[in-house]
Design a protein around this nucleic acid. Structure first.
Length: 500
RNA sequence: GGGCCCGUAGCUCAACUGGCAGAGCAGCAGACUCUUAAUCUGUUGGUUGAAGGUUCGAUUCCUUCCGGGCUCACCA
């Protein structure tokens, strides 16, 4: 018995043996509770003591013991159902001999059923006057301390169940996440969108610029990729006549991990026939403010040191115009949008601004790099960045008045990208040309360049209606709504390096 | 992948310039029938992430490795 933990586990096993000796089942198959702890707290949390006594509310409930305060022949337990907590008052003269003996053998962390009636203690705490206890399961491993909780982030992510047991705010974040997804579904289905599920395993990983995970199907002896986006399948569905379609599901990208990136992440993508990018901006504004209202009860949220307003309208910045404007301000000279359109002048501008750009890229990519370097961390309030260069947007439709620019926007909130949307390119000839340009990038060594997808072009050859499409990063939206600074705080089991 | 930082009891944290590894909580024994970070008395518990090195002596300094955090790059 060298370590303290081993000693405590042994003690708890001995306690279970003693509980079994009392005639209690160690792992009963069910427990007929009448109320959850949350239901009791929700229904009676504001009822005063005399009213409780008068109505004499009998209950049978269950949960995990989160603390035990002992007073000789009486004790107080805090019982939790994972969401709410209620106090249980144990006294020897209210219990059978067996139930009282059981109460003395319970440990912090055990699962129990409690029978009794509600009352308020002298300190006005809503409590259950226990008349019977039922043993439900033993907690063998000592839980983290009640006051400081579990602070170690590594343990919190690896053993999320512990985090949920002892840190009540964690539950709140994932309730926000669940309500966010529900609210989005409600908005979209209310607009007549059909929810679908498209392949996660794809022979060609398309629809985004990213490196995929590779896997293999044995029976078909076939290389498959975990999808990086559902985009091309959803657009095939618009060809098939599903004019309003959406999917909320996981994407997988084989890239670095950061506070804003998990290798698997959840994305909403929706496609809407006959509308353009402009219409999507207005829709996004109303959808996000409605979602915020439903999820947190306000269209204004706290995010770190900021207050963020999700009330429409959001700020709009044209990418090259905003880049030129900010560059002018920083350099003290007039920089024109045209300087961003030719490669030589754009590269020269980046150099003057001290912005490093990767070699071998075109002017559109340089302009985008300059914009991001100058603006990204200023985009705290919701801001649509629109008018992206065609070069960096292989699936977007060009502006009728400017083929060098596409009808596309990205929405930034809290300093990072939350949404990406565009008028969908539905011209198969132009789409083939764009894919070929991407293949050229790939040949130059860009592993994230888009692959050719012949079947997708064939689908477009049947005629796809004009449509707007948008992707919203659910994890990042939940970060904003739950005031979480890391994406790992809104993903129950974020990817971690395996141990040993 | 680069830079910076962290890893000490089950949990939360100390340990000065290199000098006997400590506290609170939890646990154990005892007292206590309305407490709520209950209180009081006593007490168990350590391969200081791992392996090397420097040193009379390493939690402390150096190297490598393992795990994590922040940040940069890339993206949603």
């Amino acid at each position: 018995m060298s370590s303290n933990e081993e000693a405590q586990v042994a003690q708890r096993r001995a306690n279970l043996d003693a509980i079994m000796a009392l005639g209690c089942a160690p792992y009963p198959n069910q427990f007929p509770l009448r109320d959850t702890v949350s239901a009791l707290v929700d229904a009676h949390g504001t009822v005063d003591g005399p009213a409780l006594e008068a109505s004499r509310i009998e209950t049978v409930t269950a949960g995990r013991i989160l603390s035990i305060r002992n007073f000789g022949k009486a004790s107080f337990f805090v019982l939790s159902d994972g969401r709410s907590r209620i106090q249980v008052y144990i006294r020897q003269d209210a219990l059978s001999e067996q139930a009282y003996a059981l109460s003395r053998l319970l440990d912090f962390g055990d699962q129990i059923g409690v029978t009794g009636h509600l009352f308020r203690t002298r300190t006005n705490e809503l409590s259950i006057w226990a008349t019977d206890l039922t043993f439900l399961a033993k907690c063998f491993i000592p839980l983290p301390e009640k006051w400081h909780g579990l602070q170690d982030v590594e343990t919190r992510y690896r053993q999320r169940y512990l985090d949920l047991i002892v840190n009540p705010d964690v539950r709140r974040v994932f309730e926000i996440r669940s309500r966010t997804v529900s609210a989005i579904r409600e908005v979209l289905t209310g607009e007549g969108f059909l929810e679908v599920e498209t392949p996660m395993m794809q022979p060609i990983a398309g629809g985004a610029l990213a490196r995929p995970f590779v896997t293999h199907h044995n029976a078909l002896d076939m290389t498959l990729y975990l999808r990086i986006a559902p985009e091309l399948y959803l657009k095939r569905l618009t060809v098939g006549g599903i004019e309003r379609v959406f999917e909320i599901n996981r994407n997988f990208r084989n890239e670095g991990i950061s506070t804003q990136h998990n290798p698997e992440f959840t994305m909403l993508e929706f496609y809407w026939a006959y509308v353009d990018c402009e219409r999507l901006m207005a829709f996004t504004e109303t959808m996000l403010s409605r979602v915020a209202q439903q999820v947190v009860g306000s269209d204004e949220v706290t995010f770190g040191e900021h207050r963020i307003s999700l009330r429409a309208p959001f700020r709009r910045l044209s990418l090259r115009h905003a880049a030129a404007e900010e560059a002018s301000r920083r350099l003290g000279v007039t920089v024109t949008v045209d300087e961003l359109r030719s490669l030589d002048s754009a590269l020269a501008l980046a150099a003057r601004l001290g912005i490093p750009v990767p070699p071998g890229i075109g002017p559109g990519k340089v302009a985008t790099e300059i914009f991001e370097a100058l603006w990204e961390d200023q985009l705290i309030q919701p801001t649509f960045i629109h008018d992206f260069p065609t070069e960096v947007s292989p699936l977007s439709k060009q502006r009728p008045d400017d083929p060098d620019t596409v009808e596309r926007f990205e929405l930034y909130i809290g300093g990072f990208e939350v949404a990406n949307a565009f008028s969908e390119l539905n011209d198969p000839v132009e789409q083939r040309r764009r894919f070929e340009a991407q293949l050229a990038d790939r040949a130059r060594g860009d592993a994230e360049a888009h692959a050719m997808d012949e079947d997708y072009i064939r689908a477009l050859e049947y005629g796809m209606p004009p449509a707007g499409g948008e992707g919203i990063g659910i994890d990042r939206l939940v970060m904003i709504l739950s005031n979480s600074s890391s994406i790992r705080d809104v993903i129950l089991f974020p990817l971690m390096r395996s141990r040993d």
